[in-house]
């Protein structure tokens, strides 16, 4: 039996080449891209920050609701970007034989996931930075530490980039892909502490909420945004790394099974 031995080592060109492909395609469609990188999150930010913020008033510690919700929305939105890239877009690349073509160059499956996840990270950073600048103009980000939100932006790109492949690599059709939003993204977005502190949830729900990786990412983002970092943010970061360490190899395994047969 000649086993499919994965080629060892990482070829840098595979990763940069794929990243460049995504960047070129992204720039080609920048007018459309702008709507989801910036315009959509800003609309949500304004609606929730001004609208809901008016009803809620001030949170504990004298933080306004808008200040509280801003990092939650920004990081939550980044999750959608990363997931979308490696579920929906990657599915189309599988379906249109774009990966098949790439595989005729000396690239490996692991490198394909690396290139795509690197691009998911790029998108995540772009949307986080863009939206954060707007939020800062509204006065909803008022600490220099908020720049550190780039760190959870990167982590979200990696973790959810890996997670997205779990869907694109097994999806039999695009309808299946909608599960990534109904089962994963939306529940996380609403129960990850983006909109309200997890502590107000019933006791038995709290651990479930903390198990969702977005919760940790939002927690870290808020730590930077409100300049309230402590040891719990380190635990959250370690948890995200652990989740990624499990998801990524599964993503590579499933994608290999899909593309190399």
């Amino acid at each position: 039996m000649n086993l499919a031995i994965p080629t060892p080592g990482i070829r840098r060109r595979s990763v940069t080449g794929l990243w460049l492909r995504h960047a070129v395609s992204f720039v080609r469609y920048w007018k459309f891209v702008l709507t989801w990188v910036l315009i959509e999150p800003v609309i949500i930010l304004v609606a929730v920050g001004f609208g809901v913020g008016k009803l809620v008033g001030t949170m504990d510690d004298g933080v306004s609701y808008a200040q509280f919700v801003t990092p939650g929305l920004i990081i939550g939105n980044a999750m959608f970007h990363a997931l979308f890239e490696t579920s929906w877009n990657a599915y189309n690349r599988i379906d249109n034989d774009v990966y098949e073509t790439a595989l005729t160059t000396p690239i490996t499956i692991l490198e394909i996931t690396m290139g795509d996840i690197l691009w998911a990270v790029t998108r995540s950073i772009l949307t986080v930075v863009g939206t954060a600048i707007v939020a800062a103009l509204f006065g909803w980000l008022n600490h220099w530490e908020a720049i550190g939100m780039i760190i959870p932006a990167i982590m979200v790109g990696i973790t959810f980039g890996a997670l997205g492949f779990l869907f694109s690599a097994v999806a039999p059709h695009t309808t299946f892909l909608t599960l990534v939003f109904t089962l994963v993204a939306s529940p996380m977005f609403f129960f990850s502490g983006s909109f309200f502190p997890i502590s107000i949830l019933p006791d038995w729900v709290e651990p479930i909420a903390w198990a969702m990786p977005l919760t940790s990412a939002v927690h870290i983002g808020r730590g930077f945004a409100l300049a309230s970092l402590d040891i719990t943010h380190l635990w959250a970061a370690l948890y995200l790394i652990a989740v990624t360490a499990v998801l990524w190899p599964i993503a590579v395994f499933l994608l290999r099974r899909k593309l190399i047969s």
């Binding site: 080449g17 395609s25 080609r28 034989d97 774009v98 073509t101 790439a102 595989l103």
Partner: peptide, 30 residues
């Protein structure tokens, strides 16, 4: 795959790119 060219049964062209970009980015990746 470093020494061999491959024409797959399905063209596998990248719809997100132009004709030139298809070639250029493939060459770069290669």
């Amino acid at each position: 795959r470093e020494v061999m060219g491959v024409v797959t049964q399905h063209d596998g062209l990248d719809g997100g790119l132009t004709v030139f970009q298809n070639l250029f980015l493939f060459g770069f990746l290669a």
